[in-house]
Design a protein around this nucleic acid. Structure first.
Lengths: 341, 341
DNA sequence: TCAGGTTGTGACACCGATGTCAACATGGCG
DNA sequence: CGCCATGTTGACATCGGTGTCACAACCTGA
């Protein structure tokens, strides 16, 4: 390990002066600065994070605590967004994945304290309320994709209601009047919120909401897992005499099964049936034929926004700390929805 | 911050004794130990990671450097596996995502040095050779999903050749004699290796390898991106008079398009056509109707193995340091391949 | 009873950086 | 010429732990 002292000795100055150069302290003579900087480069000196942190009493690392988000394909973008935001602050990220186990979570809170992380982004896989207990933790905490029922921490969540509205609105604008819905599991908050969005759009467009056209595409097994039943649900919907001309899906996987059901019945997407996805998982949306129009779940932006709020909570950045940030879910138009004449 | 000294004062012992209790040093009287432990709990004392690290000169954190692996749905399992392995060693993980940018990578190497990480797992999105340059970094480095052309670091890679063999072998055992292949981009190492696996299995089964049945499902655009063309490729294959009874896919996305092509031609999977995926992305494999038989890319195991090797490289664990570990790609049988009579 | 060993504990220096404050050189001004 | 402002640098203490070594108290066996 090359240390500050080594550099100082080599440069014939005091350690403090080297420290000044490293930290861009203006109170250093130009000549001295360059001489020292040259030696730093030559010796590959890298300041010791631990020592610095000890002296400064907080670190340039932010903790990311997740239940499973970091490890499911659904929402890795949240990790990317968080990292991207941190990079701009020259910070890095310590990842803790609890798998939903409270004991692991406890451990990781201790770990974060031990590391004196500058703050924590607490993210969940599903948009849902959380109760953090009292993780005696002094620095800022921001919730991502979840929110505190007791409003104890600021949160950043996707605008599911707006997303639902966007899905329905787009189809209505294309002239669809009979629109089926194959939703996520009814227990999810997202389902509830998007439902509200559909109704608003329907009302605006003068459509009546028909509950018989609104069916779940996932069912919960007794063991807590989920089974996708969108294929069968779609078959039922599409065999009706008054079958819908368009189907709104709770996610892109459901859309995949809708495509399959349509194929089974000899219906063409989008000629006979328009399909609207949700999540915008490109692995699916860009692989389906025709490519799937979807509404993106803005995980990347959620991550970035969370980091942003975090630095405000900690007072490192100017700006108000809003208790909840709603991140919009943008429409991504591809080829699966057609204009009705 | 509660410090060691605070606890010591409260307990009426020296800081060193508290330190001993924290570190399970046996040279502490039982009574003293319990008294101190009680106070530690009461005061919520958590040892300062930075101070400890400074004194001990290495940390309990391992760096995970990735080009994009941490942030693509394909391989998050690698992150999970790494974490799982580290957890058993009571370690944690600092994540660095370079997006393939050498400058960012340079920065992150510095960052890892500054953090004195105990080692680095260097993972890539695609199975490929890498050249690390000379990241003057003293601690162990293990490559995951990639390997050093100059054999300068141990690596853990998927057994693509074995995976290809498994795909072909399974279909041959089911009685298929005409097998089409829709592969990944030919520039990928995986494509090459799996091709070798196919041939071995074909030879063993007495089949002749017919190049006209082996077509790429992805093409590289001039801008470097990739377009999936498996649908069209499959249509061509399936319109032949002597159409194959089974198709081996380079990944599960390709399989999705094969399903679509089959549906277009009125062919049923698996009655008229068996389809074999690769990767085992459950988002796809369990959503397709019928569910897709695939060969799993064992990212989780690769992550775990990498951590394992890393602790050997650093001499923390007994065991040989093998220059390259091949992790098998297991067959996951579902409903898309049928036994021919 | 005493030499020699074991156990339990504390004093102190040190890891590598930075904040504080003092010291020194320089130059301008009355 | 004396004095103060300004610019530049270094000595030293300090952050929170742990390694080293000394030391006291207690045991053991001759």
């Amino acid at each position: 390990m090359v240390t500050l002292k080594d550099v100082a000795r080599e440069a014939g100055v005091s350690p403090k002066t080297v420290s000044r150069v490293v930290n861009d302290d203006p109170a250093v003579n130009g000549k001295t600065r360059e001489a020292v900087a040259a030696i730093i480069r030559r010796m590959h000196y890298v300041p010791d994070h631990a020592a610095r942190m000890m002296r400064m009493s907080h670190s340039a690392v932010v903790g990311l605590m997740t239940d499973a988000v970091a490890t499911t394909p659904y929402s890795v973008d949240l990790v990317r967004g968080t990292q991207s935001g941190l990079r701009e602050q020259s910070r890095t990220m310590l990842i803790a994945n609890t798998d939903g186990d409270p004991q692991q979570e406890q451990e990781y809170w201790r770990m974060f304290r031990a590391h004196k992380v500058a703050g924590v982004v607490y993210a969940t896989m599903y948009h849902r309320p959380v109760d953090l207990g009292a993780p005696d933790f002094e620095r800022g905490i921001v919730l991502a994709n979840c929110y505190s029922a007791r409003r104890s921490h600021p949160s950043v969540v996707p605008d599911d209601e707006g997303g639902g509205y966007t899905q329905a609105r787009h189809l209505i604008e294309l002239g669809h009047r009979r629109i089926g819905i194959v939703s996520l599991s009814p227990v999810l908050r997202a389902t509830l919120l998007r439902g509200a969005g559909y109704r608003t759009a329907f009302a605006e467009g003068g459509l009546v909401y028909d509950p018989s056209l609104d069916v779940p595409g996932f069912v919960t097994r007794p063991d807590g897992g989920e089974d996708i039943v969108a294929y069968d649900a779609a078959l039922t919907l599409l065999r009706r005499a008054d079958r819908p001309t368009a189907i709104i899906c709770g996610n892109d996987q459901i859309a995949m099964q809708i495509y399959a059901a349509a194929a089974t019945l000899g219906l063409s997407v989008p000629d006979d049936l328009s399909v609207m996805g949700f999540d915008d998982m490109t692995v699916i949306t860009c692989t389906l034929k025709p490519m799937l129009t979807s509404v993106a779940l803005p995980y990347f932006d959620i991550g970035r926004a969370a980091v942003d709020i975090l630095s405000r909570v900690n007072g490192e950045t100017e700006g108000p700390v809003t208790p909840q940030v709603l991140v919009p879910c943008p429409l991504v138009v591809r080829q699966s929805c057609r204009q009705l004449v």
